[in-house]
Design a protein around this nucleic acid. Structure first.
Length: 366
RNA sequence: GCCGAGGUAGCUCAGUUGGCAGAGCACAGCCCUGAAAAGGCUGGUGUCGACAGUUCGAUUCUGUCCCUCGGCA
């Protein structure tokens, strides 16, 4: 705790920033495929921005799934608080709606402290729901889903799609008859709110704009990314992914759980169940992770407004972070220019000095 | 050198009783509104080792040659 005088100055400063940040609602988002190197760069950037990391990752929310989900260790976080990690047990429900509510709470808190939130993650739907809103519909009704799955078993794979064709022909036309997960959701919505999902989707259209975002997409040359994925899988195995999976299963977390269908646990669980050998499990894990990265890239490619940054293979984390810091600084300065002549920082400071200040002064926050 | 097996997609191989070659994996493209690391869709021209013969037609049959892998010398 600092002396009274200093503390008062800091408080005044924070109030000032808080009001600006609360009005403008700027947000910095780093997205990119798995293993591209988001986490390490994000820590550097968070230190530079004197803010915290908000993780937008549907898997890192599960407690006890550390190696497989590649959560940064405390050491790797280097004192930067990471939020939206370790929120629920592997058998507890979690979804994009939960994420969005919790994320918005964290963001508002940061605005209150005069900080620019830094969102980092690879779950495209979560990022989209955060930046463009989410239709305020009902959550999952697992009993009803179970009932529908039973129907599909009894009456054949095409039955549910035919049902949807009756209730919501538009959406049925867009969904492949085999895409049972999405067909069931559509039927569930119709059952719960009495109108076709396609109608509410059209009405919402991801058209909310709760923030002014700067979205940075990290990518690498495809072959280089694939090499990193394979190296990371090897590292996860060396850290004890098999033990971690065994432990989770011993705690009663079965393979049917959504969390246990995540990359790593799914393939290792199959090996532990004797369905195939260790080498085959490793081969599948690497393959599935490559495929996943590819799907992520497809998703992000069409998101609007992403500034893409291609990382070079020999580029250091520091160098990458510095490049991003440049982009963010310009972004924040442009916000200053557009809103008023007032600076982000306390009187006398240069524009954007607060959010982009050098980070080499731990323990001397504000 | 002899005997055997084989040379077909980037890889592993199937196949054509002679009629413009096909699976898995790899790879590429795509869809997505509370399971999203989930779930789903699409994409195959490759001198069928080379040359010659038989045939209307050869990757398929025959011959010669080249290469690979085993075994024997």
């Amino acid at each position: 705790m600092s002396g009274i005088g200093k503390s008062q100055i800091a408080e005044a400063s924070v109030t000032r920033h808080a009001s600006r940040v609360t009005v403008l609602r700027p947000i910095v988002v780093i997205i990119g495929p798995t293993a591209v190197g988001k986490s390490q760069i994000a820590v550097q950037l968070a230190r530079a921005l004197r803010t915290e990391v908000l993780t937008a990752d549907s898997r890192q929310v599960y407690c006890g799934m550390d190696i497989g989900m590649d959560k940064p260790t405390l050491d790797e976080r280097r004192g930067v608080p990471h939020r939206l990690i370790d929120l629920v047990n592997p058998d507890e429900p979690f979804n994009v709606g939960t994420f969005r509510r919790l994320a918005i709470a964290e963001i508002d808190r940061l605005y209150g402290e005069g900080k620019v939130p830094l969102v980092v993650g690879g779950t495209g739907l979560y990022v989209r729901a955060l930046l463009r809103g989410l239709w305020e519909g009902p959550g999952a009704d697992w009993a009803f889903r179970g009932h529908l799955e039973e129907q599909a078993r009894l009456k054949g794979r095409e039955y549910l799609h035919q049902e949807l064709g009756r209730l919501d022909p538009e959406l049925a036309g867009r969904l492949h008859p085999h895409d049972q997960v999405k067909i069931i959701r559509a039927l569930e919505v119709h059952h719960l709110v009495g109108q076709p999902l396609s109608a509410v989707q059209r009405q919402h259209g991801f058209s909310e704009q709760p923030f002014v975002p700067m979205v940075i997409g990290l990518t690498r040359e495809r072959q280089a990314l694939y090499r990193r994925i394979e190296a990371r899988v090897d590292a996860q195995l060396a850290k004890g992914l098999v033990n971690e999976t065994q432990g989770l299963m011993a705690m009663g977390y079965g393979r049917h759980l959504g969390s246990m269908k995540g990359l790593g646990y799914r393939q290792i669980a199959g090996y532990l169940a004797g369905e195939y050998g260790y080498d085959e499990a490793v081969r599948r894990l690497k393959r599935d992770t490559r495929h996943f990265a590819k799907r992520q890239l497809t998703w992000f490619r069409k998101e609007p407004g992403i500034v893409w940054v291609t990382l070079a293979e020999q580029e250091s984390v520091e160098a990458s972070a510095a490049r991003l810091q440049d982009l963010v600084q310009h972004f924040l300065e442009s916000l200053n220019g557009n809103s008023s002549s007032e600076s982000w920082d306390s009187p006398g400071g240069s524009a954007a000095e607060l959010p982009v200040a050098p980070a080499s002064v731990p323990g001397e926050r504000d």
